[in-house]
């Protein structure tokens, strides 16, 4: 979960650089994704939109919650469903509008498979997302993939309801410039 700690550090740095108004933390702060891009846009934010919150279209919280940071897959599949493609269209648009962000796409599998195969399967899923984002105009050098196989489930029951959420590819964004 190193990206969480990075996001926290990033959020903290940007927050300190911008201002110390505690209201900057929106509801999205609970999962450590507050702050971020809202920093620069903060002063000019329209009324009712809390910069850095999930209502701020330039914020990571908006990306994670409103656009949606993850897509789900069928058993043993890496094809993108129409619903997944819609989510990824939103991700591509956001990444193009927020050029200061890089993304690591994490591929995951449910626990029903051998360890090695699941790493390869997670890689296929992450790659499917990466290729789709590139096809929608995101620069390849802003994207990287990693597969966690079945090592990082978010749901822990041994039923399809949990497996369905674990068969995922998550686009984890971080503030930074390509090539840096």
């Amino acid at each position: 979960m190193t990206h969480f700690s990075k996001a926290l550090v990033l959020g903290a740095v940007l927050l300190a650089a911008a201002c110390t108004n505690p209201d900057r933390f929106g509801p999205g702060g609970a999962d450590g994704m507050a702050g971020g891009a809202g920093a620069g846009a903060g002063a000019g934010a329209a009324g009712g939109v809390i910069p850095g919150s999930a209502n701020d279209p330039a914020s990571p919280a908006y990306f994670n919650q409103t656009v949606g940071d993850r897509v789900l897959f069928a058993v043993d599949q890496s094809t993108l469903s129409p619903q997944a493609q819609t989510t990824l269209d939103g991700q591509a648009q956001w990444l193009q509008q927020n050029a200061d962000y890089l993304a690591v796409i994490e591929g995951h599998a449910d626990e029903q498979g051998t360890r090695e195969y699941n790493i390869a399967l997670g890689a296929r899923r992450a790659n499917a997302v990466q290729e789709y984002l590139i096809s929608r105009g995101v620069a390849p050098n802003r994207l990287r993939t990693v597969s966690y196989g079945k090592e990082r489930p978010i749901e822990i029951c041994s039923e399809e309801s949990c497996y369905a959420k674990n068969r995922r590819a998550v686009t984890v964004i971080s503030f930074g410039s390509a090539g840096v």
Binding site: E116, I119, A120, A123, R124, N127, E131, S147
Partner: peptide
């Protein structure tokens, strides 16, 4: 060992 490039292992 096995290595992955893109979708291929």
């Amino acid at each position: 060992y096995s290595a992955t490039s893109g979708s291929n292992t």
